[in-house]
Design a protein around this nucleic acid. Structure first.
Lengths: 160, 160
DNA sequence: CCGCCAAATGCAATTTAATTGCATTAATAT
DNA sequence: ATATTAATGCAATTAAATTGCATTTGGCGG
């Protein structure tokens, strides 16, 4: 019987290789963070990532620093849902995508395409370099609409 | 001679009317904030707005609260340039636009059109209500590229 | 014009995300 | 194995934003 291998996770492996390619070290905390980000759908706040890491593996500040380092080499992307905490997701690199965030329950729907490529192109034509963008769509999802309707009833403001 | 009027600023006047329409009071701080936002091109951080207000007119926390109130009735829009401080700009309402932010000097270029209308429409078709979006483009502007070239020189890493 | 009342404000304290300094640990090259 | 230095842990700190509560004030009715 050959030695058992960890479950194949090519995203994780290539992410670790990307670290090496940038002279960044592959450490246990970074491996843990990337394992989460490559296996679970994000994006997650730093706190959320930290809580998913086996307790004791690393400090919260290490998650901050690791993510910052990973963002610099485009391993992860930072999103802003406008609620005061940045979120991170694994950067697949090839295909950009967008999110629709429910402004009530914070659920996230992923749209697997990007409308802003043309804008980035335009920015480059205007002379900008190193162009990126952030685009988030906000709304109230169907579930939350229903809940609101139930809670408020047909005549919300009229007592008795 | 008729009594002198303050300089006509229809944006300001209609903004104040919007406040009244929402049963919000027209106070001196709010007038000051809206005067700034309707006359100067933003977006500005809360701190920046506060510093532009004549000293003593109001407290910083009032600027926070006023802007929050104004955002709720869509008088202003909040943007995120990803540097830890939200920025606000007057919401013209009719025509959405985008920004290109230099990630070095933070200069802002305004693009007077919007590519995300189609995305908002799609979100609505997916059942979302109250749909909005944020889209910011980041890059390094031509000026900062030149400065970097001068500072670094043709052989940045090679001393003497 | 005067007074009422809720909305808005000022001030101080607080919360929370994120950052920094520094001593220690550990990953990688030799 | 050893050296080098990036990465980490811990504690303290920064800075944006929020909250509580007493006070003020805008806009209303009389």
């Amino acid at each position: 019987m050959p030695p058992s291998h960890p479950p194949a996770n090519s995203s994780l492996e290539s992410a670790l290789q990307t670290l090496r390619d940038h002279q960044a070290r592959v450490t246990e905390p970074r491996r843990a963070i990337l394992t989460i980000l490559t296996s679970e759908h994000g994006p997650f706040t730093v706190e959320e990532i930290y809580q998913r890491i086996e307790k004791g593996v690393c400090d919260l500040v290490t998650v901050y620093r690791s993510l910052a380092a990973m963002e610099e080499i485009n391993l992860v992307r930072r999103c802003d849902f406008g609620d005061g905490a940045y979120r991170y997701e694994f950067n697949t690199g090839d295909h950009h995508h967008h999110h629709i965030i429910c402004r009530t329950c914070r659920s996230v729907k992923t749209l697997d395409f990007c409308v802003a490529d043309s804008l980035e192109r335009m920015a480059r034509q205007l002379g900008y370099e190193n162009v990126t963008h952030t685009l988030e769509i906000f709304g109230v999802c169907v579930n939350c609409q229903k809940k609101a309707a139930r809670a408020g009833g047909p005549n919300p403001a009229v007592p008795g």
